[in-house]
Design a protein around this nucleic acid. Sequence first.
RNA 1: GCCAGGGUGGCGAAAUUGGCAGACGCGCCAGACUUAGGAUCUGGUUCCGCAAGGAUUAGGGGUUCGAGUCCCCUCCCUGGUACCA
Length: 858
Amino acid sequence: MSERRKPYPFDQIEPKWQSLWEESRAFHAPNPGEAGFDSTKPKFYILDMFPYPSGAGLHVGHPEGYTATDIVARYKRASGFNVLHPMGWDAFGLPAEQYAIKTGQHPEITTRANIAKFRMQLKRIGFSYDWEREVSTADPRFFRWTQWIFLQIYNSWFNSETQRAEPISTYRGDDPDSVRLAYVASVAVNWCPELGTVLANEEVIDGKSEVGGFSVVRRPMRQWMLRITAFAERLMDELEPLDWPVGIKLLQRNWIGKSEGAEVQFTVADAGKELEPAESGVGITVFTTRPDTLYGATYMVLAPENPLVDSIAVSEQKSAVQEYREQVAAKSDLERTDLAKEKSGVFTGSYAINPVNGERVPIWIADYVLMGYGTGAIMAVPAHDARDLEFAQRYDLPVRAVVQAPTGAENVGYVGEGAAINSPLLEGLPTVDAKEKIIRWLEERGHGRRTINYKLRDWLFSRQRYWGEPFPIVWREGKHEALAESELPLEPPPLEDFKPTGTGEPPLARAKEWLRYSEAATRETNTMPQWAGSCWYYLRFCDPANDSRFVGEGAERYWMGGDQPAGVDLYVGGTEHAVLHLLYARFWHKVLFDLGHLSKAEPFQRLVNQGMILGEDGRKMSKRWGNVIDPLDVIADYGADAFRCYEMFMGPLEQMKPWSMKGVEGVSRFLARVWRLVLEENQAGDWVRSGLVQEIPPNKRQLKMVHATIKKVSEDIEALSFNTAISQMMVFVNEFTNAPARPVSALRTLLVLLNPFAPHLASELWQRLAQEFPDGESAIEKVPWPQYDPAYLIEDEVEIIIQVNGKLRDRIVVRLNAAEEEMKAAALASAKVQEFVAGKTVRKVVIIPNRLVNIVAN
RNA sequence: GCCAGGGUGGCGAAAUUGGCAGACGCGCCAGACUUAGGAUCUGGUUCCGCAAGGAUUAGGGGUUCGAGUCCCCUCCCUGGUACCA
């Protein structure tokens, strides 16, 4: 490959332009108030999901989104916008720590080296980032403000009346610690013994850790939680006006999982004379989305972990109940959620009273009822719930249909809506009305109330790791308190041994000196999860060097302001962050907004997910298959411009698509054709101006091509349809390659259009043309984006198609805007048409001006 | 199971409001220039057919003068999710 003769000297021009851009600060975006800031221009904030700088370096997947945003950034700059287009590093994270455990190398060293490698690779692709805004989440100047934001959250509560976060000082209750947005709770967490840490639900996949695939067990531990559930409603509602893919919006909505329904209170009946009664009068509250089926509730089920079980189980059943609870506790999450398994449960021996009809219904425990959702208890309506039915059949419990199924369907097993039956209070009412009526009935009697439930849980925010942000919290006499802002940043202590302690005690506990805050107080030893930095990095980019505020007010107002509901105009990244990162970041953003620190309640206006790039064999790229493509290898052989253009030419940005080296070659040929459109090789082997390039006006056909290309490329960039934009430029180049002469003006226009895609090539050719044919502007990135003139796209004549019975039979040329009668006459005169209508009667003639004539005959 | 997105040549893919299916690129075939071609240029290339012509956008049905595009059913693929009451 190294022997390959280069189709054009990209290996010389690419480094040349990269260093010129760097020296001239070509892509630096000044902030309002700074030298060079042009306040007459509108802003455009284009954000990439910043990478975790892994040791493996850049993968071809990264530059796919980055190239797309780079094209938009260069296009927007040329179109008269102040463009914020930054890059940084999501630098805290498990791999560096794991590496440290293995080698003893401090994560900071590993991270710094990896960042240097990533930065070099990105620069080698020629991205137009404003490198003066580079940030790293592991930099104390950055995480100082991550800690500061944590304190904002810690010092806030959610006022349900205003539906906003407010400073804790406005809280009037007795115990502020019970309402803080950051709080400590003992919760059953996902403990991963192998990693020696707890994981968020989102980091556990099928009972295994997302990182490493180690098994995970449930275990109660004291953890920091963030009260994201308080924002559930707003996280759903405020998603609405955003320009996100519908699929991602849906994913977030499903994750939040809003269910409207009612809580219904059942009382535990006297458990029976001969048994030691459960404490009479104990209430069991259930959540249901179908209160209209209350008459069909023939038994109840509690989650095995439900604390009420102790007081409800009668003595004769206690041992069976206890045994079942132990069985369940021993099961891993994976086993428990295994759908293939049969439902199981145990009778508690007690009965509850159904408030609507006074009926005694048995109370069971079963692991298909989860403690973590609703109230940890259900009323079972086996006739209209598949799970309850399965359970009822297994244990021979009564089934009573209370909803009329549509004709043809059995009532039992029907889970849809329909008229209520066997329900005295609700008889005949459709589901919607029946729900309303029964809820009112329950509320009037104090047996229940209307309520809403969410699947979303509070966010488990602490980790037992070394390589993360320490909490700015100290413990004094068993109570937590905030560090003063002046004590930030709180840096992690130097450690030799990064290993998890294995007890759940974080590695920071090893740093005895650091741990001791004062005589009476010790530091919190947990660290924050990797999500913390990425929750707000896009804000820091607005003002990355500010040491007195997390982001300057003016900078925030400018870059995160504007007319739209959210500040970042375009955000491109992988679907893997569809729920977690995007939900967490929106949550933090709302807290900061509510506290008056931000301009908008939402961060990201337009979101686009790039599709995954597969190996040449159509499989996911991985070392295992040996199909991994290294961007630097491709660049060495074909150049950065070919790499960029190929990534965009492969297919639609959002689609999954396989890599093809042949495809790279094809795009590389296209760029070489552009090169040779302007230059030719002389006897000495030097590239000199092609003799065909002349200062002449383009002919009519060429003008049409120029303007059609401006239109197509501009519109396609706006729509992120880069593959078709490139294809239009290919058509342009094919056309001009064959022309006897090449007007300079047309070539210049092409170069400006091509510049966002292949900036090194376009810059070089632009400069050479400027030397041959001097004009006012010497740097292509300063040239305004061309506008097309529709007048050049219109022809005097148009070719229309002639169909007979919908089939194409002929095409003829008519004047533009020819009258219908004229088109009809011309069509009927066609010999081909006559041949096909011979012996038939023309029934109808459909005429679409400037397009077609369809003759219907039989 | 449920939700979402897909299914168009040998391959990656195009196709405004329903209006020439297959732009552009890869691959392949032929030719030109060349000592040479793995460089470059030109032409061809959905399938069947010598041709006229016919068929064709996963499969089936429908609406329409006209459907890749709209409606209904079925099949297949990808992603998400998984007892959420």
